[in-house]
Design a protein around this nucleic acid. Structure first.
Lengths: 226, 226
DNA sequence: GTCAAACCTCTTGTATACAAGAATAATGAA
DNA sequence: TTCATTATTCTTGTATACAAGAGGTTTGAC
């Protein structure tokens, strides 16, 4: 059987299942069958269960005692709550980055903005999406607080499926780019408060975006099975 | 062999090891021996490994591939970083609680403050410590954001061993109580900004507290073994 | 026909067996 | 004596076997 040498099977499995979850491959309430997945990946249940543990701990799925592992999409309220925390974490990153960001990091951030804009012009949404992610990760790093950066990354990943469905909303991308530029400018001027405020607004679900999210949420997760 | 019926062994084990870690039972860099712990608890390695996974995910220990599970106390820089994030999360809770806190919750919060003060007067440090924890948990709940509350609780738990060593510092407890009262007052007046600012200052490591923490940290974790 | 209880099946939880990588001890050469 | 290399042991990672709870199904009573 295929063995990825040198690395733990459990970790590989975790990565793969995480990808599947994050790209929305499972429906809400769906149960992940241990034996089915095990033979699908060509491994035993053991590394699979380890992967489940790990995924459950990051909140990507829920383990119910003697019932199994379930995909539990956050309900709408919880989703808004999560974006609320994400907004604050990013604001915090921005505030700190304004003092601590290096010139190299500023160049990197500037580059992602340009690449993003080019991607929009070419209609390359995947590229836009990727570079948008890079922008935010660079920001987390620039905060100078590695613990904060890790936590922000974790939540960012967890929100991935729901951020994705937002991007396609009409007119969102140009607006988003304006905000990226504003953040960049605030960092350049070492204006922590401005960076924080812009980021908070950039990420938070409020005003029209609340309705946009609600609409696409209804489409994506029409009903809780659990 | 003893079986805790109705509940998963792995979860029980997790709780117990978590307690051991949080009360500082393990030295920094120490490796947790699977087989030793397994026979100590009278179970097989399987639930133990599940507990390790779970604990690793909350950051309480580190799994190194084919090396084992290690206690890795954060170094001083990381500890300050963590408190920085904790301060911001609590500030966030306070800000939101100022709008959303219920009258019942206000009464509960008020009660913990009184119990705390009584405990100080009687020299009952354990009681003080417990009620102090309750105060903060009530605050998390009062934020009205259950996701935020969970995240705050998680980090709070992770910082437990290091907060403990701070409390004994001379004069810290009365100062802490004054801050609790100020927070309570800010909530009563629905002054979110004041509540946030006081909490940020209450939790953050700055000024004299920086030196206090550094001193007690040196005492507690004199050297990294890894 | 409907409801309840016992039975069976299916899935998870735990234990044990086996494989393979790391650490360490032992052996030999310089 | 010291260093390198090999052999041995120990520990983790994975697979499989076994136990037990949850869910569904059949059977029986009303």
């Amino acid at each position: 059987m295929m063995r990825a040498m040198g690395t733990r099977i459990a970790d590989t499995i975790r990565e793969r299942i995480e990808q599947m979850i994050v790209t929305g491959e499972f429906a809400d309430g769906e149960r992940l069958d241990e034996v089915k997945l095990a033979e699908q990946f060509g491994v035993s249940r053991t590394p699979l269960r380890e992967a489940f543990q790990s995924l459950a701990a990051s909140g990507l799925l829920t383990l119910e005692a003697r019932r199994g592992a379930f995909i539990r999409h956050p309900d709408f309220v919880e989703l808004v709550e999560m974006f609320e925390v994400m907004a604050e974490l990013e604001a915090m990153c921005g505030f700190r980055a304004a003092r601590r960001v290096s010139e190299q990091q500023m160049r990197d951030i500037g580059r992602t903005i340009e690449t993003c804009e080019a991607a929009i012009a070419m209609g390359d949404f995947d590229e836009y999406y990727r570079e948008n992610e890079t922008f935010h990760h660079l920001l987390y790093e620039a905060s100078g607080n590695s613990f904060l950066a890790r936590e922000a990354t974790r939540l960012h990943k967890r929100l991935k499926p729901y951020r994705r469905m937002q991007l396609r909303v009409n007119g969102r991308m140009p607006q988003s780019m304006r905000e990226h530029r504003a953040i960049h400018a605030a960092l350049e001027q070492s204006d922590g408060k401005a960076a924080a405020a812009t980021l908070r607004q950039h990420v938070a679900i409020q005003g029209e975006r609340f309705n946009d999210l609600m609409a696409s949420y209804r489409q994506m997760a029409p009903r809780k099975t659990g």
